[in-house]
């Protein structure tokens, strides 16, 4: 019964019901802020302690892939906002189209993320016993996806960082702990968001969302935008350290 936008038993009016749902989502997002806050703190401190290692780590990331993903995610936020707008003005077909676009963009993001993660695995850049930030420099044959000139550049960069921080390999693991921790948690939120979007899509294909009742679209939208905001911070924090060398 709840899918049709009827009034729940505990509420007196539909307005009260919608207000309650929106308020609940905002409060939930605040808990998310604090959740990400903890790992941001860990990041901030370690970046402060081990700047050379963090700079070196950041330079091993692919700016092209990261930048592309940023654009993708921003675009998905845009389509999500349009989906909310369509539900507010009652354009039922448009809701589905924009939700679908949002989902597609989300999956593009996942695809790129998968490429990035698997590169890091192959390059031995996952924290743990096998971690070796010099792996590609020392074994260029095992890293065919890195061009020779890039490798040269990376080698110089790492040598410089090693000179500044003899324990570079340990501290670079901290950078990658931050990288995998933060992007992993972000991706987890995206997965949940994508699940919610599929649920919305099902509802919108059944024509359930109207200008009078579009609360689910609205609050899932809030969640999706929040996930976007997290990435807006992650991108410069992880990809853009000390790029000017």
């Amino acid at each position: 019964m709840h899918r049709t936008g009827e009034l729940y038993g505990q509420f007196k009016t539909l307005e009260q019901q919608k207000e309650t749902a929106t308020l609940g989502m905002w409060i939930f997002l605040i808990t998310e802020v604090m959740f990400f806050g903890g790992i941001m703190l860990a990041y901030a401190l370690n970046r402060h302690f081990y700047y050379p290692a963090f700079a070196a780590g950041s330079n091993t990331l692919s700016l092209k892939l990261g930048g592309f993903n940023t654009v993708v995610l921003l675009a998905s936020s845009f389509t999500m906002a349009l989906a909310v707008w369509s539900s507010q003005v009652g354009k039922k077909t448009l809701i589905s189209i924009f939700l679908l676009l949002t989902i597609l963009l989300g999956f593009v993001f996942f695809g790129v993320k998968y490429v990035e993660y698997s590169q890091k695995f192959h390059h031995h850049l996952v924290p743990g016993k096998k971690f070796d930030i010099f792996y590609c420099v020392n074994n260029p044959a095992s890293c065919p996806d890195v061009a020779a000139d890039e490798l040269m550049e990376e080698s110089n960069l790492l040598d410089e960082a090693k000179a500044a921080d003899p324990d570079l390999n340990a501290h670079a693991q901290l950078y990658y702990s931050a990288y995998f921790g933060m992007t992993g948690l972000h991706a987890l939120h995206m997965v949940i968001g994508a699940g919610l979007l599929f649920w919305l899509l099902k509802g919108s294909l059944a024509g359930r969302f109207t200008p009078q009742w579009n609360t689910p679209v609205d609050i899932v939208g809030l969640y999706w935008h929040f996930v976007d905001i997290v990435w807006i911070y992650l991108f410069p924090l992880l990809y853009l350290i000390d790029r000017h060398k």
């Binding site: 936020s77 845009f78 999500m80 906002a81 939208g221 809030l222 935008h225 929040f226 976007d228 905001i229 807006i232 911070y233």
Partner: peptide
């Protein structure tokens, strides 16, 4: 950027 998202998208 975040402020823009919060103010308008959200």
């Amino acid at each position: 950027k975040a402020t823009l998202v919060v103010l308008f998208f959200m």
